[in-house]
Design a protein around this nucleic acid. Structure first.
Length: 256
DNA sequence: ACGCGTGTTACTGT
DNA sequence: GACAGTAACACGCG
């Protein structure tokens, strides 16, 4: 369930806690989508020092001293746990044991969180880094509603269902707006909101959960929040059910 | 106690 | 081919 701001905070905390440690062993418990054989993964990473941990799109990247990267995608329910000695966590996907006998385990009861060794570089910019020209061009090319575009990881990476709603409310654009009908100055607002909503969320999470490495924090959400009935400016919050839920208000302009 | 929720892929239908 | 809609993964949490 974690989204970009959560992952950003996890990555910073993991970087602080783990970088500098050397890999003693990798154990693959259940990772049918892993792109290499478990033995090859172990061979590659064993003995390498963890140089840094960072976020890339919705994945956590663990970069090692020889340049290899292990990417972890948490999907809906992936959770990270630190352990000492032996990993006792249920639903383990993969675990990394370090030379000092501490380790990191990725778990997922659904079994869909997945590791990738040396993932190919992605074309789509991260939400943090997307610029206005790019966004204008991409939106101009599609008739899909704008929320679908924000969620499309091939266009812009890192935004999930909940933050898409927060961002669109912040920009006062209806999630059902037709992408190529949104005027340029509104696209500018949208980009501003992408950056500010995500940044603000990250700050809120750090403030309330400075050491978090798993789970999610969303009680500060203004619109995508089932506990709230009204937006901060007093409009009734509406909910549209379509697989994932979309929360919005009539304050948001519909371009169509 | 039971309903809600998150991402991705794969597939059907228009 | 573009786009919409749906199911599946299967449990933790409040």
């Amino acid at each position: 369930m974690p989204e970009l701001p959560d992952l950003q905070v996890f990555s910073r905390n993991l970087n602080k806690m783990l970088s500098g440690k050397t890999v003693k062993a990798i154990t693959v418990h259940k990772a049918p989508k892993l792109n290499v054989m478990p033995a090859a993964l172990q061979d590659t990473l064993q003995g390498q020092k963890l140089s840094s941990v960072y976020r890339d799109g919705k994945e956590l990247y663990f970069k090692f001293s020889k340049g290899d990267v292990l990417a972890l995608h948490l999907m809906l329910h992936g959770k990270l746990f630190l352990f000492e000695g032996k990993n006792e966590n249920k639903y383990s996907i993969i675990e990394i044991l370090f030379n000092d006998d501490t380790g990191l385990a990725l778990t997922d009861f659904q079994g869909i969180a997945n590791p990738t060794l040396n993932p190919p570089e992605k074309d789509a910019p991260d939400a943090d880094a997307a610029d206005l020209e790019y966004l204008k061009t991409k939106l101009g090319k599609t008739k899909t509603n704008v929320k679908t575009v924000l969620l499309d990881q091939k266009i812009i990476r890192g935004i999930g269902n909940a933050y898409a709603d927060e961002i669109l409310w912040d920009a006062r654009i209806s999630p059902f707006s037709v992408s190529n009908k949104i005027p340029d100055d509104k696209v500018k607002d949208l980009l501003k909101s992408i950056h500010s909503v995500l940044k603000n969320a990250e700050e809120q999470i750090i403030k309330s959960n400075p050491d978090i490495i798993a789970g999610e924090v969303r009680d500060f959400m203004l619109i995508h929040n089932s506990k709230k009935k009204q937006s901060p400016t007093g409009a009734e919050i509406l909910v549209k059910e379509a697989g994932r839920k979309t929360y919005y208000t009539e304050e948001q302009e519909l371009y169509s």
